[in-house]
Design a protein around this nucleic acid. Sequence first.
DNA 1: TGCTAGATAGAGCGTTCGTTCTAGAGAGGT
DNA 2: ACCTCTCTAGAACGAACGCTCTATCTAGCA
Lengths: 203, 203
Amino acid sequence: MKRATTDEPGSGLGTRERIVRTASRLMQRQGYDGTGIKQISQEAGATLGSVYHFFPGGKQELAVQAIRHGDHEFAEFLTRMLDSRPDPAEAVETTARALARDLRRSDWVDGCPVTATALGTAARAPDIQHAAAEAFARWRALVAAKLQKAGFDAAEAHDLAHTVISTLEGAELAAQVSRNETPLRLAGTHLARLIRTYHNATP
Amino acid sequence: MKRATTDEPGSGLGTRERIVRTASRLMQRQGYDGTGIKQISQEAGATLGSVYHFFPGGKQELAVQAIRHGDHEFAEFLTRMLDSRPDPAEAVETTARALARDLRRSDWVDGCPVTATALGTAARAPDIQHAAAEAFARWRALVAAKLQKAGFDAAEAHDLAHTVISTLEGAELAAQVSRNETPLRLAGTHLARLIRTYHNATP
DNA sequence: TGCTAGATAGAGCGTTCGTTCTAGAGAGGT
DNA sequence: ACCTCTCTAGAACGAACGCTCTATCTAGCA
């Protein structure tokens, strides 16, 4: 056989893709160690054989792919949000609000798709940590590009992007733990204020 | 017997205290699911029997106590840092630098003592999540108090404290994952800048 | 000297873990 | 028709998991 994108159980996704998505979602909620390979295979509608066929590197390789999936998924979300407003300060605030809405909708279980998977595996699995670092870097680059498009100096944009991502990340974590939108709402407000202290407003 | 603070192996701590500290340190590095009870008992120099004697609620009860320990430990650190400078903006920046230094010194493994333990256990163990939420609230209160002491309005101080803690938390996470002090350094700079945009400078 | 309660000690329970392994199903090429 | 190669299927393995259990030790008090 060659392609397998439309002949699988449930959704129209191939087995490999279904496994990655399921792993990403489960590890996002339960962490790396809290998620078993058998649970992944069951919820993905695949068998253990299929998992090890597509991911001979085992759980670690699967986790790396899960992080990459979450990385790209959030990058798309971030791009959409940042493009929704011309002013970067407003765009960042909109992003924070959207994060809060989605988090609440998931009953506070779907936080950052990368953090939970990567945290706690640092010492044991450097490649997992590396994939997470790449995700953070990609997201920062998107924010930096948005700021530069609005007239920000390159170095300033790069620095600010660091704090924008860090703050959104931390606020999502705080919101998740306290089951409350407030940290994300305030993060949006304060990030917008911080960005506006740089007088490079878009024309 | 009554007290047991000086008659234990290794350090001068009682068995119970040694177990809590070891659990806190291990879960901080490896997460809740990544840390086994037997590993804790071994590294604490205690036996399984002692662990279940002091913590009949098992691993969950131990995790709650471990988080509380990390909570108070970081609260002391935060108090010390905030008191080191009269100006709150400078104090927050100093805190960020100190976090970066300690994180680097631990070879990037000792992040937030609460996050790793609480993340991934949200759905299964509400009491663990609750203990983590309490920790965040306590730290926010310390920052808010510092801001109010410097003349900030109560509501403003409370809001700013949210973002200060969120940003420090997120920046520590980003720094840990990328093994780089930059996120924390920039977080300190930007938080100081944000605080200074409120013209309630200390006299 | 006994008695009692707190604390220590670790073998062993059933379960689940990540992984390996062999067997078979199904489509394409010749 | 047959072979081949990708993918599916799940039994089985040793190790580790959280936890229970009984037995022993120790200190303070009568």
